[in-house]
Design a binder for these strands. Structure first.
Lengths: 189, 189
DNA sequence: TTGCGATGAGAACTCTCGTTCTCTAGTATG
DNA sequence: CATACTAGAGAACGAGAGTTCTCATCGCAA
């Protein structure tokens, strides 16, 4: 196996394993077996498990943001308000097999294997979500209140975590209803 | 040390340690040292770490619900709308030292040491939160939409997790602003 | 006093896991 | 063909943790 192929296989398998079982539930030998590389190559590419986790988080952040933006755009093209479409994207995700909530929130919860590098990536991810929402709000709802992107981010993260806990899309539907209400014009004077 | 005292010491110390470091970051020896009991007594009272974790979750659930209800009531007595007071309670919590988000969400994220018993307690806890919100909504906002308690629960959980990630109360303020808007009368026809 | 059950302190056992080391095989080059 | 570098397979090592076991001690009843 060539270098780039091995790196892709490692990150792909690490993503599946870490998301499925949590960081502490996956050993380096598990990643080795799943990716079909030698332990030697694994450690040459990622000098320690911490490095591997950091590389995984970076990779997942990039792929998730691309997926989320594309899914929202697709729904928007079908006529849905862009900000409401974010909840449809989350619902798509939450109904996919193996859904376990937000990998970044889960990683932060596993405090014993996390370091400041990991924390920084998690913050970057959540900051990127709010930035994307602010971008959509500025474009489609320029008269909304200044706290709108932050509130939508809270609704999205709350829906992600409650959907994972209950294995249900009801929290996402509730959050979407609330968001729709927030996007309506304010009450008459 | 007597039986009840030992049990109290164990649960109190387990709460501090598990919440601070995560379940996997705490060994039975750590609990023994902190509680000042022998490993023998620890295992007599809780036959395994899973049992101890379950007992901790039950205890924390009970104490958290009592604290939350009391804090909301206190704020309500000071003139705040009960449903908005829930966000003030969360803000009090989030600004207290050692805040690390929701222990139940964090526990669910540590998938490798969790079993169905633990999952059930987490669901019970989150169900209890939404039930409390429904109770307050029925009492103070009987004309609100049916999704209101669910949406408030999503806002609260999202605020809890984002406040933990950013170490900031801004998400809680944003969530409170959104909740206030939701509680206003719907737009005029 | 003597014996017995309970208790505490902590050693010991077993297993897991991150990381490193060894040994072997293959391959490209002089 | 010989040699030297590379890479894979997996053993080995050391640390840590859950759980159990040993043994000395203490309190109390006969």
């Amino acid at each position: 196996m060539k270098g780039p192929d091995a790196e892709r296989a490692i990150l792909t398998c690490a993503d599946r394993l870490f998301y499925e079982r949590g960081i502490e539930g996956v050993g380096m030998a598990d990643v080795r077996d799943a990716a079909g590389v030698s332990l030697r190559r694994l450690y040459l590419l990622h000098p320690s498990k911490r490095h591997l986790v950091a590389a995984w988080l970076e990779d997942r952040h990039n792929r998730w943001m691309v997926w989320f933006r594309q899914t929202v755009e697709r729904r928007t093209a079908e006529g849905t308000d862009a900000l409401l479409a974010t909840f449809d994207a989350i619902e798509e995700w939450a109904t996919s097999p193996g859904y376990r909530g937000c990998a970044f929130v889960n990683t932060l919860a596993e405090v014993s294997e996390i370091d400041e590098t990991h924390r920084a990536i998690v913050r970057t991810h959540k900051r990127a979500l709010i930035d994307l929402l602010a971008e959509l709000a500025t474009r489609d709802h320029p008269d909304g209140p200044p706290w709108l992107p932050g509130a939508l981010a809270v609704l999205i993260d709350g829906a992600i975590v409650r959907a994972a806990i209950f294995g249900s899309t009801t929290p996402i539907a509730d959050a979407r209803s609330a968001a729709a209400r927030l996007l309506e014009v304010p009450p008459c004077p």
